[in-house]
């Protein structure tokens, strides 16, 4: 059921067959079909080209296409695996697969590491951590003094950087997350399990080509 393929859809740039994507991700074919409905909505919000542009991503996250945000930028860059400035359907599904409740925890830990490794040096550095804390403070109503921010960052580094070389490597990150499992809670989107309920239109659409 729900296995509809249309000629129009196949012409979309970067379109990949749901069966292929389902085989490579925690999603079922029906869930990939439902994600395609969401993808169409997001990718045609500003420029109707079937690709998610950075502005469309920001618009979806913040209802505002001009609101730049450190996290949105990093997530966009990680989803844009080909680094061609847009997110294609296959990239969208594979990346969201990491956020599926059934995705391997190791994948979530690795994705979070890449997310926080702002400058992609292979390490999370103290300055990057501070930058993220300052960014979230800027986004929220939480006001902390410079001293308090320094204390929080120092304390975190003291615990996570077990080798004491001023940077957190993937192994140290893994250990740190195992001590604080709640740190990867934001790497799971429970909603992905109900995606077919949220976007069921593909189930009833017919194969008829106009």
């Amino acid at each position: 059921m729900g296995c509809v393929s249309s000629k129009r859809r196949k012409q979309e740039p970067g379109y990949e067959e749901p069966t292929v994507l389902a085989a490579e991700t925690p999603f079922t074919v029906s869930e990939v079909e439902a994600l395609h409905e969401l993808f169409k909505k997001l990718s045609n919000a500003i420029i109707a080209d079937g690709l998610i542009h950075r502005e469309e991503f920001q618009l979806a996250l913040f209802r505002n296409r001009n609101r730049r945000n450190l996290f949105a930028d990093r997530i966009f860059d990680l989803f844009d695996v080909k680094r061609n400035g847009v997110i294609e359907f296959g990239e969208f599904v594979r990346s969201l697969g990491v956020f599926h409740p059934n995705a391997p925890v190791a994948d979530k830990i690795a994705f979070a590491f890449r997310l926080y490794d702002l400058r992609q040096t292979g390490f999370i550095e103290r300055e990057e951590l501070k930058e993220m804390v300052l960014a979230l403070l800027h986004e929220s109503d939480l006001a902390l003094s410079e001293d308090v921010v320094e204390t929080i960052v120092d304390k975190t580094f003291g615990e996570a950087d077990t080798q004491g070389d001023g940077k957190i490597d993937p192994e140290e990150w893994k250990e740190f997350v195992s001590k604080h499992p709640s740190l990867i809670k934001n790497m799971t989107l429970p909603y992905l399990k109900d995606i077919t309920l949220a976007f069921p239109s593909f189930v009833v659409r017919s194969e008829v080509d106009e």
């Binding site: 951590l129 929080i152 975190t156 996570a160 604080h180 709640s182 809670k185």
Partner: peptide
């Protein structure tokens, strides 16, 4: 209290570091 939290905890709990809005209709 934020001071007693570790920095990653603060970040991961932040709404601005969440993809939830992608699914809002």
């Amino acid at each position: 209290k934020p001071v007693s939290m570790n920095a990653f905890e603060l970040i991961s709990r932040s709404q601005s570091f969440s993809l939830d809005n992608l699914f809002e209709k």
